[in-house]
Design a protein around this nucleic acid. Structure first.
Lengths: 271, 271
DNA sequence: ATAACTGTATCGCCTGTCGATACAAGTCTT
DNA sequence: AAGACTTGTATCGACAGGCGATACAGTTAT
């Protein structure tokens, strides 16, 4: 059975989990963000009460928080007035995040060039433990809607970018990621078996890039190359993704892996 | 003198202003977001104390808030360990915002087609009172870094998208926006004089699109068309922007205004 | 009609925040 | 190498303010 990656159920452990080991550490701020995070698991506007129980917070608390967040612009009423949705004010912080991330600053022009040369979908994602978060997206062709949004995240375990990142991590960390990752497959091609993943990573270490075929989306082939920080630690990855209707996996890799590697190298901070 | 639009000082009233008329309404949540908002006005990582005074909050409070936000992933230490920067967790909320905004869902595929046809920079921005916030950006050519980020905002008053939006608003609202807008010019071509702005809006009403020439960036020409909600109220705008080194303003408008209008029409909810 | 929702309002108890203050560790001067 | 700055961290008590409980008004569904 295929998992729907457009839904909140994308197999990535929810970012909220495990953050609050001790229930005693619950504060107002945490509560508020908890409420905002309730939207992660929905496809539609949420009512106040829905918001409350989705975030595991009492009605009264939710009411207070929602009211505050609303006046601040972090939550808005739905267009149709049927419920609440995240507010536009959130995009201000998005902008701050992107602006202040030196990696993204350096990556953007490189990615533009890359996309022009590659003429396929080019993405840049950031390594965040078990998931890779899309920070810059540049698509050439028509794509599904959800695939095109900044902030979308996919598991490190079974994506080209994630594998590329893991290929640059020491074994202990790789094992740690494998152990903690959700193993539910997206497609019947998704590789989640620990031993198979290890082999793919070894392969990526030899090649300098990772190749995935239909592991997340049926019909999709992708190459990923890690982008490194000053200390050699992988911070993110460049992906190029194409369609199996146009490419064989090996032809795709042969054509695009060098381009992606070159681009990644241009971003890497050498020092 | 030109204003630097890449900085936080882009002439838009800060979103924080006026939200908290009464100082008594200060709560923990508001305080936290206030601290996060301190990044709006900086170009570099902030130290704890800098964060405190930039957000007008006591050291102790900032300490508490930063600690909380950090454990939640909304604030991170800088790569170099020199200070704090916004955290990747913010992108989760970005994703939620974009996902749950029906306008963006409908706009994305249209914009992709539009960019392929236009071969110029295509943007979609949302109307948020005095400012237009870029929500989807699709550039064809190399651009400056800051111009390419989601969440970037520009004044409604002097941008093609903003003018297009205002041309669909009743006069009272237009006057209100003009009155409250910051009038500092970006370039020496920026039109901020109320009477001139009114004329430009009248023009936009007749043409069905707004044309701006070098009002924000020197050498840039842009057409904007409003996108309307079910009740006919403008919710955002499509922009196409090009370079004066390649186009005369009239040629640019003649070529792209129809494309932009067509795209906007495809997005408009008719009902 | 009734029922099941919405969002809103009020009102104490007690929790969790904030100010003050002190300290440890690191960085730039001298 | 010692001083004069930073930086982040820790503790603690007073009191603002968040939260639970509860009630109510306005919509939509049955």
């Amino acid at each position: 059975m295929l998992r729907n990656i457009s839904s909140g159920e994308n197999g990535i452990r929810n970012p909220d989990d495990g953050k609050r080991e001790d229930q005693l550490f619950v504060q107002a701020v945490a509560r508020a963000m908890q409420v905002l995070s309730a939207f992660h698991r929905t496809q539609r506007p949420l009512s106040l009460t829905a918001l409350a129980e989705a975030s595991g917070v009492g009605r009264s608390a939710a009411q207070r928080v929602v009211h505050t967040l609303q006046t601040l612009g972090y939550i808005e009423r739905d267009e149709a007035g049927r419920g609440y949705v995240p507010g536009i004010r959130l995009l201000d912080h998005t902008h701050d995040y992107l602006r202040l991330n030196p990696l993204i600053e350096r990556a953007t022009p490189v990615l533009l060039d890359l996309r022009r040369n590659a003429r396929e979908r080019v993405d840049f994602s950031l390594f965040d433990d078990l998931r890779m978060v899309y920070a810059v997206r540049m698509q050439s062709k028509r794509e599904t809607f959800f695939a095109t949004l900044v902030g979308h995240s996919v598991p490190t375990l079974c994506t080209s970018g994630g594998r590329a990142v893991m290929s640059r991590l020491p074994d202990v960390e790789v094992e740690d990621i494998i152990a903690r990752s959700d193993r539910r497959p997206f497609t019947d091609k998704t590789i989640t078996d620990p031993q198979e993943v290890r082999e793919k990573i070894t392969e990526a270490r030899q090649l300098g890039y990772a190749l995935t075929v239909e592991e997340v989306l049926v019909g999709e082939v992708a190459v990923g190359v890690a982008v490194l920080g000053p200390n050699g630690r992988p911070l993110g990855a460049i992906h190029i993704a194409g369609s199996l209707s146009e490419w064989t996996p090996s032809a795709f890799a042969e054509r695009f892996a060098p381009l992606a590697s070159e681009a990644a190298h241009a971003i890497n901070r050498v020092r």
